[in-house]
């Protein structure tokens, strides 16, 4: 062993990193959710131009790695003269990333609400906004919950990339500890277990939500 044994202090350091992972995930998820709602509105808009712009945006984000997006934001904004702290740089890129994916997930859910619901609302002279808020979204939200929770797991795992721009979350903390101890199986194993402890309950929750949603189909089959 190079730097001695893994002590309780190292573990506390990892836990602190884990806390920042949660903070970053929450930040990315909330901001990404708000932006993703906008993307969803644009993807289902009646104006063709809005649909096209949002389509290109989604394709671009889904067609480039998050790591590259992170570098573009981190170096790009630095070069334009805006000095972003790593938390913000990571938060902004994760927000862009989640907004594209969430927007696309939610668009699917909105479009899976039967067409006749839109037509009925039109007959009742509801405005488009009223239709969306009072009729479509309550139905779409039910369908959207399982994949949204599932995507939260994805976001949480993706925050590990923020370590690359020097933000000290769980992965970075594990790297720091490993650099001093050089016991990679142990240190990254513990980090993996901590991530698992965050993600696995969410995965289970997502799956049970999905099962509840499919009750009708399950009984029919």
């Amino acid at each position: 062993m190079m730097g001695g044994a893994f002590t309780f202090n190292h573990f506390v350091y990892l836990l602190q990193g884990m806390m920042w992972t949660v903070v970053l995930s929450a930040l990315a998820f909330v901001l990404g959710g708000v932006a993703g709602f906008g993307v969803m509105l644009m993807r289902t808009a009646r104006t063709r131009l809005l649909r096209q712009i949002s389509f290109v945006f989604v394709q671009l984000v889904q067609g480039t790695p998050l790591l590259i997006l992170l570098f573009v934001v981190y170096f790009g904004l630095g070069v334009v003269g805006i000095e972003l702290p790593p938390l913000l740089a990571a938060g902004v890129s994760l927000m862009v990333y989640s907004s594209a994916f969430l927007g696309e997930i939610w668009r699917g859910c909105v479009e899976s609400v039967p067409r006749t619901q839109w037509e009925a609302s039109e007959c009742l002279a509801l405005t488009r906004w009223q239709t969306l808020v009072d009729v479509i979204l309550p139905q779409a939200a039910r369908i959207a919950t399982p994949p949204t929770v599932g995507f939260l797991v994805q976001v949480m795992k993706s925050t590990s990339l923020a370590s690359v721009v020097g933000f000290v979350e769980l992965t970075r903390a594990a790297q720091v500890v490993n650099n001093s101890l050089f016991t990679p199986f142990l240190v990254f194993g513990i980090a993996g277990v901590l991530y698992f402890a965050l993600c696995y309950p969410l995965s289970r929750w997502s799956r049970s939500l999905e099962r509840k949603l499919n009750v009708g189909r399950r009984q029919a089959a």
């Binding site: 797991v153 795992k157 925050t159 590990s160 370590s163 992965t171 980090a191 993996g192 991530y195 698992f196």
Partner: peptide, 8 residues
């Protein structure tokens, strides 16, 4: 599926 690729 429940741990980040980077950690793996």
């Amino acid at each position: 599926r429940n741990t980040p690729y980077l950690i793996q």
